[in-house]
Structures are given as C-alpha cells and as structure tokens.
Design a protein around this nucleic acid. Structure first.
Length: 233
DNA sequence: AACTAGTACAACCGCATCGGT
DNA sequence: GACCGATGCGGTTGTACTAGT
C-alpha cells in the first residue's frame, strides 16, 4: 500500500491509522479529554498532527459511533435536512446520533448524488411511469439537484396544517417511524413534503401521483441505478 | 485467473472561526 | 483591536474492495 506516505516536517505520519496508534489515541483522549489535540499529539508520541488525531477520534474512535449502513429513516432525514440547510454536514450530523459529518457527506456523494443524476437523466419522462405516478424520493432528489448544484438551499416553508402525506405512502408503518429515534425529523419531513411539492416549480407532479418504492428488496431497483453517472469534473 | 471500472470511505487539505493573550 | 494557535467544517483525494467482463 502506498498511501502517499509522505512524511511532513518532523516525520509526521500520514495515511491510514494502525491499531497501535488507535490504542494510543484512545488512551490519551481518555486521560486528557478530546480538546487539546495538539497537546495530545505531542505527549502521546503518536506521530500525527493534532488535526489528524481529532479527525480520527471524531470519525472513527469516539464512543457511540454508528458503523454500518445508513437506514432508510436516516436517509430520509439526510434528504430533508440537506434540503433545509444545504451542505451543512456537521449540522446535519448532529441530528443523526452516532453518525459523523464525514460519513453523511460521503453517503451523500456516493448514494444520493447518483440518484440525483439519474433523476436528471430521466427528467424527460417525469411522471412518466406507466401508472402515472412518480417515486417520492425520485421527486426529492430531482428537487435536490437544483439546490445542491447551485450550492444553495431553499428554506422549507412552514407547513403548519398542510400535510397529510401518509407514512404508508413512504413505505413505513407509522409505528416503525414512531419507534424510530428519528421520529421527529421523519415526521417533519413527511409533513413538509406536500407543501414543498406545491412550492417547487420544477415539480410536475401533484401529491395525487406520489408513490414510494421500497428500497430494501431485490424486487424494486429504484435505488439500484447502475453506473456512475455523476462526474464532478 | 486477470483485468477493468465503479463504489465506499478514511484521511488529508485549505479556509473560516474561535478564544486566549 | 491585532495577532496567533487551536479547532471546526466542507471539499477533495487516494486506496481498498467488489462486481462485471
């Protein structure tokens, strides 16, 4: 592995962390707290800069970090909050216990943007499904493409008293959402959705044609858009 | 089996902001 | 108020892994 192991200044390491480094870092953060990173880097003997130590701790070693797949609830929250706040990953991460800004950012880039591009490719047949319906998340990512690429985000209108989009339409049972640690954000998103659709000029569909296709099965490949069609350059 | 392309994600970099002096 | 180091944040890069051919 040649992860550009360039030494910097006085032999500061770069690249992937070794188990021993992790152990060292955990020990010293436990002793000294997760604040004085330059100090920790110096006294611990870890040949890393404080910044690198902080990042390793926050994104990987910190207790209560959730590793593993982003759940559908979490994804919905990410979509909603991104729509509200734009690329404020740290802020979004605070609404998702155990998830880091880095993880959410990566997830957005690798999963959601791909869907956005797919949505864009299919713009020509919006609402063009045989049954006259359009996938709800398809609509959302289709919406997000404008806000993301413009580097802006539109505040979500207050939707008091507007919503009735059913959770069932999103493929969730109400109880599943209610029992979720993310209950509020999910419900907020659901309740906001109709007004968003109304206010979004590019939405061609009304709520009457909203549908949701389940992600977690082989039968529906709404998420399985193949090929990387997102090109940053 | 070997190669290639695509994907996931850890880690780095640069800039902005904060806090102490 | 200016300076400076530390910290936080978002964007980007590089490598490992996986699936397809």
């Amino acid at each position: 592995m040649v992860y550009k192991a360039v030494m910097q200044g006085e032999k500061l390491r770069k690249g992937p962390w070794h188990v021993e480094e992790d152990k060292h870092l955990i020990t010293f953060v436990t002793l000294l707290g997760d604040r004085k990173w330059d100090y920790i880097a110096r006294v611990s003997g870890i040949k890393r800069c404080g910044k690198s130590c902080r990042l390793r701790w926050l994104n990987y070693l910190r207790p209560n970090i959730k590793h593993g797949d982003i759940s559908i609830e979490e994804e919905l929250i990410i979509l909603q909050l991104h729509e509200q706040w734009g690329n404020k990953w740290a802020r979004i991460a605070r609404s998702l216990p155990g998830r880091t800004d880095n993880e959410i950012k990566n997830y957005w880039r690798t999963h959601v943007r791909r869907k956005i591009m797919q949505a864009r490719e299919q713009e020509n047949f919006q609402c063009g499904r045989e049954d006259g319906k359009q996938d709800i998340l398809f609509q959302k990512v289709n919406f997000d493409v404008q806000t993301y690429e413009a580097g802006e985000h539109k505040p979500v209108d207050d939707t008091s008293g507007t919503s009735n989009t059913s959770l069932d339409a999103l493929g969730f049972s109400s109880s599943a959402v209610m029992n979720s640690p993310y209950e509020e954000p999910v419900l907020d998103w659901v309740s906001n959705d109709q007004s968003k659709i109304r206010h979004q000029g590019d939405y061609n569909c009304t709520e009457s044609c909203i549908s949701y296709t389940s992600r977690n099965s082989d039968d529906n490949d709404v998420w399985g858009w193949s090929d990387s069609i997102w090109d940053m350059n």
